[in-house]
Design a protein around this nucleic acid. Structure first.
Lengths: 199, 199
DNA sequence: TGTACATCAGTGAACGCGCGTTCACTGATGTAC
DNA sequence: TGTACATCAGTGAACGCGCGTTCACTGATGTAC
């Protein structure tokens, strides 16, 4: 309804609003931790525009949520890849990968829930998530190739590792009250016990 | 609004409606996988009563959801305890415990989400969940006492096991489309690698 | 045995609210002449 | 340099909907006398 204090963008700069809307959506999703609870009208309020203005850039509420989640995942993937590439040693690279991913997710509990636990998973396929899983398999395979960990199947080892890491983040995100050891302590044990990384 | 085909209960049998409402709530929560998405009016429709009749037995929508979740958790805990008690050998008992818990949760994906991943966790404390965690610690301790697994800290071992199991169920529940090996295969690896159970 | 009545089990209308989406619109700004 | 006009960026009213909750109520049934 009533517009906020925000002025109109200059001609040709209409796309600026799009990123403002995405940013506001991410803030609200982080707060809510649930894509179904997000309302398009709340996003408009957060940005300071009329609810109908959202339709200038997104077909409907679902497309908006999807675009926001995809954007978050893109940042995440970039951070993980950068952390991994900062190390030559395969074990160090894999460790950096896992630590960075888990840490970033733990720092964005609401978005973690939207990305991995919301009903969006049932309602839309999110193909961009697949690359993240494959990256872990590759990282594990490099450790195997360099004989830095005991022989095994890269897919199975990566699956078990990802499963345990997912569980660690999920428990922390969903029961934030519980006292916990630092996340990396537990992740280190998983790397040692599940992959056989030497201590 | 309009009542269903369901007749009124006899005098003194008013509590029967309470359990019908709980059962309907559990059916809907299982479908929705999200406590916030459940509406009191949908529950009334499912039972075939007026929406206002729910207030005869529950203070408000939140109390209804809480009661339903507590009921589900009670059944779960009973099943897990029964499975565990069916074995004398501590390792067999622990294995039965973990398999039963994971299997039941996997078979009720919607209720798993409500119990462990919904915002209900933030809005209400669910003290009954604590006993389940303590049961696992005890089961692990028994294995340690009998020297059936390598020495270690029961709390830490139980935490890591629970974390990994939670991750396994969560991934399956949230990505039901993915092809997966049988759950018990993965759980067996976790028991072997995280606790050192001999193969 | 009959009947008045209290109680129990449940109803239905109504309230105000926030929602997603549609529609016709407004007014500033850049551009063609 | 001035001006008509197309386009762009965004608005505001309105729609129908389902929601949680409140309120006063109904009518069958068991019980006291």
């Amino acid at each position: 309804m009533e517009a906020g204090t925000r002025g109109r963008n200059r001609r040709g700069q209409g796309e600026l609003l799009r990123s403002e809307i995405i940013a506001a959506t991410l803030r609200l999703l982080e707060e809510l931790g649930d894509d179904q609870a997000l309302s398009l009208r709340a996003v408009a309020r957060e940005v300071g525009i009329a609810a109908t203005s959202v339709y200038l850039h997104f077909e409907d509420r679902d497309q908006l949520v999807y675009a926001a989640v995809e954007s978050f995942h893109g940042d995440l993937a970039a951070a993980v890849e950068a952390a991994e590439n900062a190390h030559d040693d395969p074990v160090a690279a894999l460790t950096a990968r896992v630590f960075t991913l888990a840490d970033r997710l733990q720092r964005h509990p609401g978005l973690f829930k939207v990305l991995h636990e919301s009903t969006l998973n049932q309602r839309a396929s999110m193909p961009f998530k697949q690359a993240m899983g494959e990256g872990t398999v590759t990282a594990v395979q490099r450790c195997l190739d360099a004989a830095l960990i005991p022989p095994g199947d890269a897919h199975e080892l990566a699956l078990d590792l990802r499963t345990a890491v997912h569980g660690a983040v999920s428990l922390r995100v969903n029961q934030p009250g519980e006292p916990r050891e630092p996340l990396t302590d537990q992740l280190t044990r998983f790397l040692v016990k599940l992959l056989g990384i030497p201590t």
